[in-house]
Design a protein around this nucleic acid. Structure first.
Length: 861
RNA sequence: GGGCGAGUGGCGGAAUUGGUAUACGCGUUUGACUUAAAAUCAAAUGACCACAAGUCUUGAGGGUUCAAGUCCCUCCUCGCCCACCA
């Protein structure tokens, strides 16, 4: 069940060899026999057990302390387990959580399982294993991995979203939405995946028109199907979400994507009367962002799917031609239509529209360059002012009217388009001579006054489609009664439990297998008690994950989804870590938080203070890590082969800046293991030295203190700015420096060495928590280094006694000189000119001398 | 077509307001230890050059400056996102 091993045999063999080597090293290494060796597979499980026993990472709402809430995005427990690419996200989360915990913050970090979803159901269809069983197995392995990695979660708050005790409250979330008028059922054209046999949200359809779960070359494109569906009214909050996006401390990339997704544009809805084919009383609404061009409208265009096309197209003389065009256009995917360079269309003969501003009668066309999915699916075409309309008009010999006075300009792309706003209106009746802005205002006013339209804000975002025709999800808590219609299941009757079934294959007829479970479907009406039928749709997994960050704050409450007081203590989430779901999940949780606020259940209108969005780690071959390519590495293999979780975690943080994509390197973990081993050895050797009561003043150990304080400063600042890779480099540098000092001078049990080693034990805590704890205890401490132990640096040890200046002549470095700290320009200049090599480049007096304190001196000759 | 990123050794990557480019790690090479290998420790490692000296080097080309990976202009490549958006 767990995972297919064959594909990773090579990797496995490789690590097995490493394992053998390491074991030999332990047995026959040249370290003195009595010295305790660095064996992560002994110390790591030991501390993991101790932390669990002491509940080291358990938290309560301690108002006397400042809180930090740091969480990774909850994982979907797939059958393949975590690979080393996934481990990056968890390592980053844990480094930040541990850093703040060590600094004394009341820090909460958690894990939960996003357990509902299609793969478990598909696995059930294939093998007959119930989703609940395979999901539990998968969770067990994920949990084993994360425990072995030593993540500092409050495990008492763990839950999985497919547990009735959880989805009971997911159904409560639905009720909350329903009661606030934010959940509704509607018949809409929706994306449909033939492989999943279910509808998909817009966000689940990728750029090439395929389902997010079936993106392969052989997979079919999604199609449109008309289905009666449940929606959450996210559009009610579109404006607020959009407006508050800029202020978020989130990556610009994500913010831009969300803003594009909401897609706000301000414009005008204009109503055109129709004429002919018996449509004389019918109005055609169009949306335009350039209403000032309305005098230039010479034709109207309807999208092929527009309802008026179906209605009046068949009445036209050329109905066959229209029908053929529409059929062809609908078969083409939206993507194909967009790729189409040449615009095509068909005129609806006999139908015309009346321009409300000048009464002109104009043609009505069907063309697939207009999309049903935006605006009203119809446009007023202004070929004089719009390139697309112009192309179309030219092709079909439709008149062109310019509504701007362009003077001598003739080139549209080069001259007119960029300067459009500078031209005065023309051919626009009473509005001639007005500039673009005034003209627009005046024309909108006029349209409104004659009752033919209004200003409107148009969004690209649609309401959130939440229902799925699948088994393995939280049932929508609705029943249908003949007398009372659609009724919410009362809260005290939740959860609506998923019944056990034998056959998981959906019939593809717009309903899930639940529809076939009669004893479940047949229920009673909560109002009259008479027979009623259950809703058979389940909710999209994104509904489950929309409120789980709240559940963490009160994970086992059986009276309510969460206690708002507890949630308000922890919220907003200070750091949210992930590398996926740029739009969907991250938009939904913002929406939900605002709903909670309006319902009086939350106070912060934004749930996430800082989004930490990590890049991908690709496989060593440069391709994306995936089970099907056989290029994933199981972190357990690396850990168990003797390198341990700490070395793996350090490498995950060291490999590159966290937000950058990079590639796995199988030699990397041995490298970070070496580093940890050097730190280990340094500490062990120290412990074995007899304690020295030094009579030397502290200043004699200045270089040791300097190394320690430099590292403390750098690592602290780097963690604050999430620069994990340079923090690791700084610690490596410190260890290297201490080795040099050790070799050069004596190595003895002095306060200076103790300070340096204790500092490093603390600094390494967020990165390699087990060795940190072990060394901390080896150095004589009894408590956990992870609770409230973080070193502070003292600037006085960072002050240099002497400074090395670079000496430049005409901008080129020709040498360097060492002078006492604080030397003035004259001193440095003399020292520099005393340098023979420098002097050879300077003949006579320099024209100019540039002096940069503590850096360089530059002679211009 | 539009928007946003990014191009630095053999590789992953460092580099305050412009101020000694290549920190740290991997890899490679040498030495110590070892019967031997591994491990460990010490050291070398951008290119050209036998060495020194010197020259060149941050995608390409120009510019500003005493000084440019960093600022400005032109261009190339790659990645991501959006896209007949009315």
């Amino acid at each position: 069940m767990r995972r297919s091993r064959e594909a990773e045999q090579d990797v496995h063999d490789g690590t097995a060899n490493e394992h053998r080597k390491l074991q030999q090293n332990y047995r026959r290494g040249n370290k003195e026999d009595h010295m305790k060796r660095y064996e992560p597979n002994i110390i790591e499980p030991k501390w993991q057990a101790k932390w669990a026993e002491d509940n080291t990472y358990g938290v309560t709402e301690d108002t006397s302390k400042q809180k930090i809430y740091a969480s990774p995005m909850l994982p979907y427990p797939s059958g393949t387990g975590l690979h080393t690419g996934h481990v990056r996200n968890y390592s980053i989360t844990d480094a930040v959580a541990r850093f703040y915990r060590q600094k004394g913050f009341n820090t909460m970090s958690n894990i939960a399982w996003d357990a509902f979803g299609l793969p478990a159901e598909n696995f059930a269809i294939k093998t007959g294993t119930p989703p609940a069983v395979s999901t539990a197995n998968n969770i067990a392995y994920f949990k084993k991995q994360l425990l072995r990695l030593g993540m500092s979660y409050d495990w008492s708050r763990e839950f999985d979203t497919s547990d009735p005790e959880y989805y009971r409250w997911t159904q409560w979330v639905f009720s909350l939405m329903y009661k606030r008028g934010l959940a509704y059922k509607a018949e809409k054209q929706q994306w449909w995946c033939d492989k999943c046999n279910t509808v998909l949200a817009d966000e689940q359809v990728n750029a090439s028109g395929k389902c997010w779960r079936h993106e392969g070359a052989d997979d079919p494109e999604v199609t449109k199907k008309s289905v009666n569906q449940w929606f959450f009214k996210i559009t009610d909050y579109a404006d607020e979400i959009l407006e508050s996006t800029d202020a978020l401390n989130w990556p610009e990339k994500i913010k831009t994507m969300q803003k594009n997704w909401i897609g706000r544009s301000e414009g005008t809805v204009v109503e055109f009367d129709l004429k002919g084919l018996g449509a004389d009383k019918v109005k055609l609404d169009v949306f335009t962002t350039a209403v000032e061009t309305i005098f230039g409208v010479t034709f109207m265009v309807l999208a092929p799917e527009h309802p008026l096309v179906a209605e009046y197209g068949q009445l036209a003389e050329n109905s066959e031609e229209i029908d053929a065009y529409v059929q062809k256009a609908i078969r083409k995917s939206e993507l194909d239509r967009e790729m189409e360079k040449v615009k095509t269309g068909v005129k609806i003969e006999g139908l015309s529209a009346i321009n409300p501003m000048n009464g002109n009668e104009i043609e009505v066309w069907v063309a697939d360059y207009v999309m049903m999915g935006y605006g009203s699916g119809a446009i007023m075409a202004v070929p004089g002012e719009d390139q697309r309309d112009f192309d179309f008009a030219t092709k079909y010999n439709i008149p062109v009217v310019f509504t701007t006075d362009r003077g001598e300009f003739t080139n549209y792309q080069e001259e007119i388009k960029p300067n459009k706003k500078a031209f005065m209106l023309a051919n626009s009746g009473e509005f001639d001579g007005m500039n673009f802005e005034d003209g627009r205002k005046a024309i909108i006013e006029k349209i409104v006054s004659i009752g033919k339209g209004e200003a409107r804000v148009q969004y690209k975002i649609r309401d959130w489609l939440i229902s799925r025709q699948r088994y393995w999800g939280a049932p929508v808590p609705i029943v249908y009664c003949e007398e009372h219609g659609e009724k919410l299941v009362p809260e005290d009757q939740l959860p609506v439990r998923l019944p056990e079934v034998d056959n998981y294959v959906p019939d593809g007829k717009n309903s899930s297998v639940l529809a076939g479970v009669e004893e479940w479907v047949n229920t009673t009406c909560p109002v009259c008690g008479k027979p009623a039928k259950r809703e058979t749709d389940t909710m999209d997994g994104y509904v489950c994950s929309t409120w789980y960050l709240h559940r963490y704050t009160d994970a086992h409450n059986d009276k309510q989804a969460f206690d708002p007081e507890k949630a308000n203590y922890w919220f907003p989430v200070d750091f949210y870590f992930g590398g996926d779901h740029a739009v969907a999940h991250l938009l939904y949780i913002r929406f939900f938080q605002k709903v909670l606020c309006d319902a009086g259940l939350a106070k912060d209108r934004e749930p996430i203070k800082q989004l930490v969005y990590n890049g991908y780690i690709n496989a060593e071959d440069g391709r994306k890590m995936s089970k099907s390519l056989g290029n994933t590495v199981d972190p357990m293999d690396i850990i168990e082969s003797g390198y341990g979780a700490d070395a793996l975690r350090v490498f995950e943080l060291f490999i590159a800046p966290y937000d950058q994509d990079t590639s796995w390197n199988s030699k990397g973990v041995p490298g970070t293991y070496r580093f940890l081993n050097r730190l280990w050895t340094l500490t062990q050797e120290f412990i074995e030295q007899p304690k020295v009561e030094s009579s030397k003043p502290k200043d004699q150990f200045r270089d040791i203190y300097k190394v320690a304080h430099t590292a403390i400063k750098k690592v602290t600042q780097d963690l604050e700015s999430l620069s994990f890779n340079t923090a690791v480099a700084a610690m490596m540098g410190a260890v290297n420096d201490l080795y040099l000092i050790k070799v050069k001078d004596s190595y003895s049990n002095t306060d200076a060495w103790r300070f340096a080693l204790e500092s490093l034990a603390q600094l390494i805590g967020p990165f390699a928590p087990h060795i940190a704890e072990e060394l901390w205890h080896e150095l004589g401490h009894k408590d956990s280094v992870h609770l409230g132990h973080w070193p502070e640096w003292d600037e006085k040890y960072l002050v240099k006694n002497s400074v090395v200046y670079a000496v430049q002549v005409n901008g080129k470095v020709r040498g360097e000189v060492e002078v006492p700290a604080g030397a003035d320009q004259k001193t440095v200049e003399e020292a520099a000119r005393a340098n023979g090599k420098v002097a050879s480049y300077i003949t006579g007096d320099p024209k100019k001398v540039i002096f940069v304190p503590n850096k360089l001196i530059s002679f211009v000759v």
